[in-house]
């Protein structure tokens, strides 16, 4: 039928060179990291990242880790201790919120400008100490 002559040529010595190059690649492949070591490296990397993340988030030495309810399990706390820890954390959150609220109130109070008439009225109905308190104390 049709001729099977091969019109495609290769450079001289090509196949010998090709075999050498491929053998070199095969050796390189086996000098590479064994699979088990890749797994161990992966686990170690995850561990290091976790510790680094921990230090960044909880690096504040003033923070009592034991009081963190999420981390309570790490310290093997019992139920009562966990409840106490949670209550403590809630109180602290409330204090922070209240502090922020009072700061806001003081700021708003500083911005209030009383008219002459209002100042006279306040003077009439209050004694001196109370007057100062009214004008400055935003807790009331």
């Amino acid at each position: 039928m049709i001729s099977k002559d091969n019109p495609f040529k290769v450079p001289e010595g090509y196949f010998e060179q090709l075999e050498k190059r491929l053998n070199q690649k095969a050796k390189t492949k086996h000098v590479s990291t064994p699979r088990w070591l890749k797994y161990v490296s992966g686990v170690l990397a995850i561990g290091i990242l976790t510790i680094a993340g921990w230090l960044i988030v909880f690096g504040d030495s003033s923070l009592d880790l034991k009081s963190n309810p999420t981390l309570a399990f790490l310290f093997g706390l019992d139920e009562q201790e966990k409840a106490d820890s949670l209550a403590k954390a809630n109180r602290k959150a409330e204090q922070i919120a209240w502090h922020s609220y009072t700061e806001q109130m003081k700021k708003e109070a500083d911005e209030i400008v009383f008219s002459e008439e209002e100042l006279d009225y306040i003077a009439e109905i209050t004694e001196e100490d109370e007057e100062e308190l009214l004008l400055t104390n935003t807790d009331m």
Partner: peptide, 27 residues
Amino acid sequence: REKGYALLISEFSGRIYWQIRRMVYSH
């Protein structure tokens, strides 16, 4: 293993070369 790879390469490199060459034409 090394000997195995050498035999694998010697046995198949030529055949794989021609299989591909006949498809892509360029050496």
